[in-house]
Design a protein around this nucleic acid. Sequence first.
DNA 1: ACCGCCTGTTTGGTATCGTGGAATTGAATT
DNA 2: AATTCAATTCCACGATACCAAACAGGCGGT
Lengths: 263, 263
Amino acid sequence: MAIQSVDRALQILNLFSHRVPVLGVTEISRAVGLSKGTVHGLIRTLLQQGFLQQDSATRKYRLGLKIYELGIIWAGTLEINQKSAGPMNQLAKETLLECRLAIWDGDSMVITSTVHPRARAVLPHQFGPRVHAYCSAIGKAVLAFMDDAQVERYLKRTQFTAFTPNTVTDRQQLLEDLVQTRQRGYAFDREEAVQGLSCIGAPIYQRSGQVAGALSVSGGTQRVMGDKMEGFALALMNTAAEISRYMGYFPGYGDTAAADRPR
Amino acid sequence: MAIQSVDRALQILNLFSHRVPVLGVTEISRAVGLSKGTVHGLIRTLLQQGFLQQDSATRKYRLGLKIYELGIIWAGTLEINQKSAGPMNQLAKETLLECRLAIWDGDSMVITSTVHPRARAVLPHQFGPRVHAYCSAIGKAVLAFMDDAQVERYLKRTQFTAFTPNTVTDRQQLLEDLVQTRQRGYAFDREEAVQGLSCIGAPIYQRSGQVAGALSVSGGTQRVMGDKMEGFALALMNTAAEISRYMGYFPGYGDTAAADRPR
DNA sequence: ACCGCCTGTTTGGTATCGTGGAATTGAATT
DNA sequence: AATTCAATTCCACGATACCAAACAGGCGGT
């Protein structure tokens, strides 16, 4: 069904990760189960086009610059990123908290843009852009406003790991959290992923009425959860609603279910 | 020499840009000069692996999330990015200016990381990560400390376009600028690329003694070029030198030429 | 509501192109 | 110098990717 050689080339690219950024031909051929000769041919092609680069000293391979450039193009032309740039800056300025935007993909959240109120923190993209859905405000904001069926599928497939004493690892407890989130309209992360770090998250909707992603503000627990919390939550909700409007969503035009079936 | 189908698949990915983020099968087949059937097969493979995504309404194609993730991995595991994260944050805090790091690639500079002192500006990566070498401090800082032969090749291949009245479009004038840059140790961009925006840039060296990239601070002309200018330049130079040390470069161990031939 | 027209998609037969194994180079270690 | 391991090149076979042409399906125009 898929073109073999192309498929294999992409498989090779997928081997690279934060943990394993450098690979040799032999390692790769073992990993994908192909002969070294075959792998070499694929790699040479990827190399020529700049999708891989070779360390002249070790002769091993890393991902190439081209991939970075294409990745930036992806992020820069993503609708939700374009629509949210202005409002997010505004929100960061108002709250003096770090703002992040993420979309749902394959059972976890992919951070697609970030705005810092100050320069103290390291660029977050350098950490790797995925966060778990069950222990982040940004993830729970999406889960709470998704189809029940999709949530069910998510729960079936997911292993819960505790990162802090506060991490919710119980299915029932998570579902209750989602009910509360639905009621209040925004989600909390009270040091569930990182000790000392708390977040508030709110969903963003798209034209169809389905959840497109989520927005969050985060910072030290004292700041975020202190007496200004309600103000932060309100500003966050307003910004998320504004972005949703830019995305073409008008609340009242029919809720999630109705908007799904066009007539 | 290269594997045909893989080469063609990568060519297809390369068609996408900031200007043209969405393409259909017919457009692609025209652009790469292949039959629609062939292109469809390649696209289907790229789609399955998440390197492309298809808009369900228009049936056209965009770059896929996978590419973004791999791009982030590239940036996150890049040596110069890892080594510079700490010093750059420090510099941003000290100067309250935006700091950027870029590497040289194919006659222009690729921004690989950015640190903001405040949240006012939009995430820069969303603009597209390339800047011209001849009209940026970050570019001239690299050009000035590169091999003459390489500069010569660059000049031969490059078309100069004026973006502001200050843009240097004359070959001789640029060479003089580079001489001055070499003497003072850092480069200026006095509104040469963007009206009202000025930058100071300094080179970063790697083990071999060759230039690995450059660091810059930028902001409104009045702030950057005002009476604090010399202080900014000093802080910038110190930070760039610190990063160079982390990269394994020790000045005095032999200059560019000598370090190239290991004994 | 019908009809072209321009999309994206599927199919099948053929020649091409990628494949895997073995041979080669080359560096690093003993 | 000898040994080992990795990256690279070579080549003949046969699977596989390619193209052309046919199919499907939505949109705009009349």
